[in-house]
Design a protein around this nucleic acid. Structure first.
Lengths: 221, 221
DNA sequence: GCTGTAAGCATACGGCGTAAGCTAAAACGT
DNA sequence: ACGTTTTAGCTTACGCCGTATGCTTACAGC
């Protein structure tokens, strides 16, 4: 009776709650993550969660920051472009892995994960000799691209591939190809990718374009 | 008694429902848009909406597409870069105006508005001599950037400017500036913008970087 | 051992999307 | 002109959701 405290129940903690929430969101998306289901997953009743989390918004902020904290820091000895590419690729992959993170990233709250990530990206530019002002804009541009491309890939992945035939049929139906010829062409490229190009990925291509341009700006417009 | 049909009630229609939904979302965001509130706004009960809209998802798809349809077509006589810039700027402004549109844009459904917009952007590239393959990637890159930058601006706008002092205080508090020096510098630039730079905007700067790079790719890597 | 505090629980409220079935009015075939 | 079908809107109800309030229980520090 005295040792019962030890055996059946590992006490909750913010860590455990966030962990479980991430697991729940990883399969099923954010919309599948409710306080009640999360509690059940933890063998607990819904209101108990509020001892470790202020409310659902706090929970979402928490798992978002935990995800962003997974973004790998760049190798410190690499040159600046390599470093930025490493950050960008890691951010992309992390948000693809936690497919809900891209949705949540549209929220202002600054946790340590986000701060670390942002600081490291900004530091790459500053250390590479970018001015304060150019760094300011470069950060926004690169950040936008990372965020946007990731969202695009996830959006594309959200369409069930078994429905490709339906989509294809729709685009072949007379007036579609007539009214939207270029979009039809584009959609067909998605559905029947050329050998050597896998569905969508030009992520690093676009990133390099941007870094090229930024470098040119740095070296005197 | 026979003329009563005429006087008090304009009958609902999909158009009117979408219109009211857009108005409701424009102030208050998507989370303020519920079937019940929307019905009330229209002087009707919730279930009546389902005569004109399949379900809430259909409603959201509807207002998103209506918003995207507002994106202006480019002047047909302009040169390709100007055309793309016009589309990109119009898309940006439209989504800033309907601040919920950027959130919703992360959904696969293809309505006529989106098709028109996408087709027109793709057409610019094709007409400018971009190959099928390069256009495929150029579209993804530009689309990502537009989407991402818009989301970033909206995210920034979501922080209440009256809280700037709090944020500033947080960044000045000792260890913050120490742990995240670059982010601190960046945040200060947001809060105390240099004269001549308004908060965030390098949208067109980044766009030009991308277009420069794409043009170079077109003209032979 | 007592007591203050924190963790978990039970109950309840108001809001949500929407399924099912009803009524009344408009549209249509004859 | 009339009966029938279709349609628009309403009522009710169900099962989710986040969470306010107030309880019990168990552990920590004196």
């Amino acid at each position: 009776m005295r040792r019962r405290a030890v055996e059946p129940r590992t006490p909750l903690s913010r860590e455990r709650v966030l962990q479980a929430a991430i697991a729940l969101a990883d399969d099923g998306g954010v919309e599948a993550l409710s306080m009640r289901k999360l509690a059940e997953e933890l063998g607990v009743k819904a209101m108990s969660l509020y001892n470790h989390v202020a409310n659902k918004e706090d929970l979402l902020d928490g798992i978002l920051d935990a995800a962003l904290a997974e973004i790998a820091a760049p190798r410190p000895d690499a040159d600046w472009r390599t470093q930025i590419r490493e950050i960008a690729v890691s951010a992309h992959e992390t948000m693809l892995k936690h497919s809900w993170a891209a949705d949540l990233a549209v929220r202002a709250k600054l946790g340590p994960g986000r701060l670390q990530y942002g600081d490291s990206l900004l530091g790459c530019f500053r250390n590479a000799g970018f001015s304060k002002e150019l760094t300011y804009h470069a950060y926004h541009i690169v950040e936008s691209y990372i965020q946007g491309y990731t969202a695009l890939v996830l959006n594309y992945r959200a369409v069930d591939p078994t429905q490709f035939d339906d989509v294809l049929a729709r685009f072949m139906r007379g007036d579609f190809a007539e009214n939207y010829p270029h979009f039809t062409e584009h959609a067909l490229q998605h559905i029947e990718p050329e050998p050597g190009q896998d569905g969508v990925n030009a992520y690093e291509l676009g990133l390099d374009l941007i870094l090229d341009g930024l470098e040119r700006l740095r070296d005197g417009a």
